[in-house]
């Protein structure tokens, strides 16, 4: 077993454990912490794949901003332990069916793919930061500008939503 494979299995186990813990935990803060574990593990996997810029962005934006926002809101609302109401009739069986169907579909697709997708260009490290910035500002410049518009809309939306109505 190569060291890389070992690191992969450790990180993958960490990610799956975190994801399971996200579902099993009763308190939202514990769920949020589990999700942070998943995200950090995924960042480690990105590093393993040589996508260092994405790894850093993953931790800075997901770990440092989005999840902090979640934790912040949980603290702000003083959200307690999840109460267990009886599932609505529609959520239980059809939901399970959906999950099983999805898992089956994914498993079938993966099983059908023959062999490993052998890496085409694994020679050296693709200087990902420079390459990404070139793509982002040349090939994907319009989508990129659109995302800035999206963020603007999101800021305005959040501000309007969070405002207390004047009474």
């Amino acid at each position: 077993m190569t060291p890389q494979l070992l690191i992969f299995f450790v990180l993958a186990a960490l990610a799956v454990l975190g994801a399971v813990s996200l579902i099993v935990q009763k308190h939202p803060i514990h769920s949020a912490l589990s999700l942070i574990v998943v995200m950090v593990a995924l960042a480690g996997l990105y590093l393993l794949m040589g996508a260092e810029f994405v790894a850093a962005v993953q931790i800075i934006v997901y770990g440092g901003a989005i999840m902090v926002l979640f934790v912040f809101v949980i603290m702000l609302l003083n959200a307690g332990i999840e109460e267990h109401t009886s599932l609505s009739k529609f959520a239980g069986p059809p939901g399970l069916l959906l999950v099983v169907a999805l898992a089956g579909f994914l498993a079938a697709t993966i099983a059908r793919s023959t062999g490993t997708v052998q890496a085409a260009a694994q020679t050296g490290t693709m200087s990902s930061t420079k390459g990404i910035s070139n793509m982002l500002f040349r090939d994907f410049v319009y989508p990129f500008e659109l995302t800035s518009f999206l963020i603007l809309v999101a800021i305005m939306g959040a501000t309007v939503l969070a405002q207390r109505e004047k009474s």
Binding site: L69, A121, F140
Partner: peptide, 25 residues
């Protein structure tokens, strides 16, 4: 990584941006 192209990583950045906007709203 498998295809040796950076398109996927650029898409990840877009997904992260959308996730951030989604989290805010």
């Amino acid at each position: 990584q498998a295809l040796g192209k950076l398109d996927g990583q650029v898409f990840v950045l877009f997904v992260i941006v959308v996730a951030a906007a989604e989290a805010a709203v």
